[in-house]
Every structure is written in structure tokens, then in C-alpha cells.
């Protein structure tokens, strides 16, 4: 099973990298870009687990290691079962 986990800064945390990307897009003429938030993508391959086990493991992994819960949030989806 393959799982994709998206980690990004919480809305309350300033994202200077995202802001810089937004400004660059504005310079290129993409004025409709209102905001950019930058994050990280993890593709995790799991072995011998069913969906319910994955639903238990993935949030644990994300919370303990992949994201720092003080500044970051995460979402995840199964991309290959």
C-alpha cells in the first residue's frame, strides 16, 4: 500500500518561503495568485497492512516524526492499495 502524506505549516504560522514564491509569481504576471503555502510530500510504502491498520499507523507516523505539531499540520491519502 502506498500512502501520500502532505505536511504544511499551520495557517497561524508565517510561511516566508511561500510568500517569496507568491511574490515571484506576481513578478511573472500571475496577479491572480493570492497566496502560496509551501509544504513537504512523503510517499510511504506499507507492507502487510490493511486499510484500518494504515489509518492507525499513518497519523502516528505523521504526528511523531514527519510533522512538528507545534508548527505543522498534515493530511494523507492512500494512493495505491
Amino acid at each position: 500500500m502506498k500512502v501520500r502524506i502532505l505536511v504544511s505549516l499551520k495557517p497561524s504560522v508565517l510561511d516566508p518561503q511561500g510568500q517569496t514564491v507568491r511574490n515571484a509569481l506576481h513578478t511573472l504576471g500571475y496577479k491572480s495568485v493570492k497566496d502560496v503555502r509551501q509544504g513537504k510530500v512523503f510517499e510511504v510504502e506499507l507492507e502487510d497492512v490493511d486499510r484500518s491498520e494504515a489509518e492507525k499507523i499513518i497519523p502516528e507516523i505523521a504526528d511523531k516524526v514527519l510533522a512538528n505539531p507545534i508548527i505543522e499540520k498534515f493530511t494523507w491519502e492512500i494512493i495505491e492499495s
Partner: peptide
């Protein structure tokens, strides 16, 4: 307690 972010000027 707390966390570190990238420097404000990157």
C-alpha cells in the same frame, strides 16, 4: 517548548 522556523529573510 516551541519550534524553529526558517529565518525571516530566508
Amino acid at each position: 517548548p516551541g519550534a524553529m522556523l526558517r529565518n525571516k529573510n530566508l
